[in-house]
Design a protein around this nucleic acid. Structure first.
Lengths: 235, 235
DNA sequence: GGCGATTGAATTGGCGCCAATTCTGTCGCA
DNA sequence: TGCGACAGAATTGGCGCCAATTCAATCGCC
């Protein structure tokens, strides 16, 4: 689907930033790719000024990197940093998991079951975008009930920064099925109010993902020697 | 001392932002106070454009709040949010403490002792600014050795957001002495490589501070009813 | 004498222009 | 044929101006 948000004049800065961020999340722009202001200008139907503002915001959030006189590019997260992010996520999401298990209500669990089911369907017939957004919605709904907005916000800030690897996102159908299974396991833990179980599930999920990335990256590095700073373009 | 950084043309945006942030930390601007662009322009000898950029950055970092057509004001952190920040800090700083205790080396401990000593002196003869910056340096040096730059960065992002309360910062000489004592206790824990002890110290430090703020705020609220959105100015 | 409206001053904020820098393709030379 | 230099094109980025909005004080009316 083509994304063409028309109106929105007043709040355009922040909104545009999150639209670009979403595009990056959905891999419409790949890590290392240059974001030309002129392109974004017409792609999102925004003024150059708003584009620059949005880009600055994303640079501050570390979603993209600003190179003076060269422009903005999607951040590439090296393995060292990726590991640091994963470790920090484990710390935060374990704590959040315990809080959520203690506070969640039946209505929310029902909603989560809906989302899990829809994700399960999307694994087969859905687009990658649908899969990604449903997965995100599922985890967002979980953490929304941790009772600590700051914790929640911090978690998502880190999650968004993890997307910058060359190989994040499900690399195989098998990984998708695994995610589906994990969702149901998490639901079981929530129903049992077992915070420890949920924390464990999350931890393993994060760390397993990281190992996937590390081995894949290893392979990439061995195969095609990546040169200093030049990366793929598009047009 | 008057802060008058002259040069710095290229990297002025981010640098200016951190200078303003420091000024806020040092209470040269109080929570709720409006930051007039024209004032900052000449106070920091910067162009209006750079001021705006710096202000935008701080708004994204939640250090200040942007009100359309009204300007930027130093963030006021309500008690609910302050508690959420404190809780999140506990989660992160406990984990960091354990990591630091396991990784710290003798040379760093020696440095820390220097800093602790200088803080101890500043408690008596120093300015509030010196006290604040020495305390910051002490904790910064500790966390620098947690082995996880992301964790470190996240901790400081939250710490900076805690400053927005009306009453943060040491409210009495007694509190300063207490901080001094805690520094030495932390050093003892580090020397013994006792991560748990360090984590406990940090936890109590954060939570005690929070309770101080909460009771003080309570008092303020009872005494002078604060009206909706108007707050102290200056000139 | 108090209160609301109108006018004037001040501040914010949108935007477009043009200079500075970098990139791409071509040409000349060894 | 390969390499280096030059020139044209394209992109970024600094900056100032002016409209829109808000604030403050005065004035007029009740």
């Amino acid at each position: 689907m083509s994304s063409e948000p028309k109106q929105a004049r007043g709040n355009s800065r922040r909104q545009l930033a999150s639209e670009i961020a979403q595009a990056i999340r959905l891999r419409m722009f790949r890590p290392g790719e240059w974001l030309r202001q002129i392109d974004l200008e017409e792609k999102f139907q925004a003024t150059r000024f708003d584009v620059r503002g949005a880009l600055d915001e994303l640079a501050i959030r570390k979603t993209i990197v600003h190179v003076p006189n060269r422009g903005y590019r999607v951040a590439e997260v090296d393995m060292q940093t990726y590991r640091a992010i994963a470790d920090t996520r484990v710390i935060l999401e374990q704590a959040a998991s315990r809080a959520v298990a203690a506070r969640i209500d039946a209505a929310t669990i029902a909603e989560l079951e809906q989302l899990a089911a829809r994700f399960g369907e999307a694994v087969h017939g859905g687009t990658r975008i649908q899969q990604s957004e449903l997965n995100r919605a599922f985890h967002q709904l979980i953490y929304r009930h941790c009772g600590n907005p700051i914790l929640e916000e911090t978690i998502w800030a880190l999650r968004d920064r993890s997307r910058g690897t060359n190989v994040t996102m499900w690399r195989s159908h098998e990984a998708l099925l695994q995610s589906d299974r994990e969702h149901h396991a998490m639901l079981a833990a929530l129903k049992a109010r077992d915070g420890e179980a949920l924390a464990d599930l999350i931890t393993h999920h994060i760390l397993r993902d990281m190992e996937d990335v590390m081995t894949t990256d290893q392979r990439l590095t061995e195969t095609s020697q990546r040169r200093g700073s030049d990366v793929s373009e598009e047009t």
